[in-house]
């Protein structure tokens, strides 16, 4: 069920610009891996290479390997669509489909792929997903109203519901709580802890307490210098990173000292 991902010597390019260099890490199954680091150091970029979203940017490419349970995601015969079927994603910015109702947004993963479910099963799935994302109570009376009529935070939770409705093996979340209040944040964190019993979760966050609360492993990204590519400084058990990090840069970042 849950998948282990091995990343090896990954270089990530936007055309000629090397954005992230030399990342190697193992993402453990049935656990939450948190990625932290300053803005612009390549966390989102790295996350997007894990489900082959990165190559959607014109001329973007990667070098190195990402292996999920013995399959190289960047192997020659790998269909990115199949990769994304197993590795879902929540984006940094909420992006519900404006032409669809709240209900259809949650069901989009199935409906857009023409997967048919019995009406009652679909209703169940939508309700369960919305409840997991802590949105059900707010929208249960207007499921068939457009999703773009929701507040920013509600839209973000709608996108989370949409991502978990297709039950991916791995869930990538790019700052899923940055637009949320503490109560919804709590709900999303509970959701992550619940999901990790079956799935693999990778989360990017700027909230250090959040990383400490929910993650088992934490990776710290940093820029090698101004105008230089980002790198993975260190990755280790969360308790270790937040108590006795091996690198000085990590310690400085976590304790709020820079440079």
């Amino acid at each position: 069920m849950a998948k282990r991902i091995e990343v090896k010597d990954l270089d990530i390019y936007y055309d000629k610009f090397l954005a992230v260099q030399g990342v190697s890490m193992t993402i453990q199954p049935r656990s939450v891996t948190a990625l932290i680091g300053p803005s612009g150091c390549g966390k989102s970029t790295f996350l997007r290479t894990l489900n082959r979203m990165h190559e959607l940017v014109p001329n973007a490419r990667v070098e190195g390997s990402v292996v999920m349970d013995d399959d190289d995601l960047y192997g020659p015969n790998v269909d990115p669509v199949n990769v994304r079927r197993q590795i879902g994603m929540v984006f940094q910015r909420a992006n519900p489909f404006p032409t669809m109702s709240i209900y259809d947004n949650v069901a989009a993963g199935l409906k857009l792929n023409n997967k048919r479910l019995k009406k009652s099963d679909m209703d169940d799935l939508v309700e369960r997903s919305l409840k997991s994302a802590n949105l059900w109570e707010e929208v249960k009376d207007r499921l068939h109203k457009p999703g773009s009529g929701l507040s920013g935070g509600q839209q973000q939770r709608l996108c989370i519901a949409r991502a978990i409705a297709v039950q991916p093996e791995v869930l990538l979340m790019d700052e899923p709580c940055s637009a949320l209040d503490p109560i919804s944040t709590q709900a999303i964190e509970d959701l992550m802890l619940e999901l990790k019993t079956n799935y693999t979760i990778v989360i990017v966050t700027h909230n250090m307490q959040q990383a400490a609360r929910v993650s088992d492993t934490t990776g710290f990204f940093n820029l090698q210098g101004v105008g230089k590519p980002g790198e993975l400084v260190e990755i280790d058990e969360t308790t270790k990173i937040f108590s006795t990090p091996a690198q000085k840069a990590t310690e400085d970042y976590i304790s709020g000292r820079f440079g």
Partner: peptide, 10 residues
């Protein structure tokens, strides 16, 4: 929106 759709394996 396109990315959202791709991420759902569409």
């Amino acid at each position: 929106l396109r990315e959202a759709s791709y991420a759902l394996a569409v």
